[in-house]
């Protein structure tokens, strides 16, 4: 009962705007601390791989970026469903605000994967299932952004991209299981499987730290974009007027 009350309150645009504003400085500070730990662990203290030497250190940007590309899409799809069913404004804002940073992480997963593939596989790119489905994900993010910007009325735009995001969710299990279902150069899952992770703890900890740092960055970027989007949508409401008045008095 208390949780639904709290959720109801935070789902109002004004409360959400203020809540994000209060959280952001702390999240940014925490992001830099975790990032520094992850980078030090990944680049300095983790031992070189017995097969790949130091080249394996690309894992610390590649794998977290790839995880984020999928995770952000799932967050988008869940919010798309909520936006379509209950017409919750904050969910509409989260869908569009996630698309940009989701596209960025997908782009990074592809580029860092390419930079890893060249020295290890001998090629920058191959049209196998994992790489192709991840590229499809990048184009999905691009189409969501383009579709949103094609509409003048942002609530109609949100409805359109929510439907597109939900249709595109079929790609997510395809990406995850692509290395199992098809023959590929790409290696199988190391951490995200039911069995014990097949990576040494000294290599795993920096990976989890980097993944946490990227998650924090997603949260920061999402909140900043969402705040901006809320202001644009609510420009004529009383609380925005008050906000402008307060900032002009400062």
């Amino acid at each position: 009962m208390m949780i639904t009350h709290y959720l109801h309150k935070i789902a109002s645009p004004a409360a959400f705007y203020l809540f994000c504003g209060r959280c952001l400085p702390w999240l940014i500070a925490l992001f830099f601390i975790v990032l520094a730990l992850g980078l030090y662990g990944g680049l300095v203290t983790a031992p070189a791989d017995y097969q790949q030497g130091d080249a394996f250190r690309i894992i610390y940007v590649h794998v977290p970026a790839a995880w984020m590309s999928l995770f952000i899409y799932l967050v988008m799809a869940i919010n798309a469903a909520v936006a379509l069913i209950w017409r919750i404004k904050i969910s509409e804002v989260i869908v569009v605000s996630s698309a940009y940073i989701g596209a960025s992480f997908t782009f990074l997963a592809l580029v860092t994967g390419s930079l890893w593939g060249k020295p290890m596989w001998g090629t920058w790119w191959t049209w196998d299932a994992r790489l192709t489905s991840e590229l499809v994900l990048l184009f999905l993010y691009f189409s969501i952004i383009a579709l949103y910007n094609a509409y003048e009325d942002k609530r109609v735009a949100s409805k359109a991209i929510s439907i597109l995001a939900l249709v595109g969710v079929i790609n997510i299990p395809i990406i995850h299981y692509s290395v199992v279902w098809w023959n590929t150069l790409h290696q199988g899952a190391t951490v995200t499987k039911l069995d014990k992770p097949s990576i040494h703890i000294d290599m795993l900890i920096p990976l989890l730290e980097m993944a946490f740092a990227f998650n924090l960055y997603y949260l920061i970027s999402l909140m900043q974009r969402a705040r901006n989007e809320i202001l644009k949508r609510e420009f004529n409401s009383l609380w925005v007027k008050k906000l402008c008045q307060e900032s002009s008095n400062e």
């Binding site: 130091d54 690309i58 940007v61 590649h62 970026a65 580029v111």
Partner: peptide
């Protein structure tokens, strides 16, 4: 130099 992989590693981190 990262054991000869410096270019790939630093480009990957730089782009990120």
């Amino acid at each position: 130099t990262m054991g000869g992989y410096g270019f790939y590693i630093w480009t990957a981190y730089g782009v990120s």
